[in-house]
Write a protein that binds this DNA or RNA. Structure first.
Length: 134
DNA sequence: GCCAACGTTGGC
DNA sequence: GCCAACGTTGGC
């Protein structure tokens, strides 16, 4: 199983919206690096859900329920989407500040490539975030 | 609101 | 194929 992190601006699509929807199609990615990670996602992979711009914290995690397919928001075959569903909310969100201050997390892609919206997360990092958030 | 990082576009 | 100009993301 692999681990990932996706970003969403909560005023566009928040964790609460995600819970309400039960699952969502993760579409609208228009960056090749991020697209390549979407394509690597497999059913059952875990996905951290991060609130960017506002919140600046990881609020919960999800799992992949459908592997990549044509992004329904465009006809351009370059772009793909996956479906994810919520697994659990973190009891305490893990903030960007905490991540930056944490020896095990300060090398995360989230810090190193701050503009990427879909990125891989190491298992150690994933477990560490769960521990901090629960 | 600013600015750094960085991806994309287009002229040459 | 290079690189300058430009646009976007996202933290501060």
């Amino acid at each position: 199983m692999n681990y990932w992190l996706v970003k969403s601006e909560p005023f566009k699509y928040s964790w609460a919206d995600f819970i309400k929807d039960k699952w969502t199609c993760w579409n609208g990615v228009r960056n090749y690096a991020a697209r390549n990670f979407l394509k690597q996602m497999q059913k059952g992979d875990r996905v951290m859900f991060y609130h960017s711009n506002e919140g600046l914290e990881i609020v919960g995690f999800a799992r992949v329920i459908r592997e990549y397919y044509q992004d329904p928001t465009t006809d351009d075959p370059n772009w793909v989407a996956v479906d994810i569903e919520p697994v659990a909310k973190l009891k305490t969100p893990v903030s960007l500040k905490q991540i930056k201050a944490d020896k095990e997390l300060d090398k995360m892609t989230l810090i190193r490539r701050s503009r990427l919206s879909v990125m891989p997360v190491a298992k150690i990092e994933f477990d560490r975030i769960l521990r901090l958030g629960n």
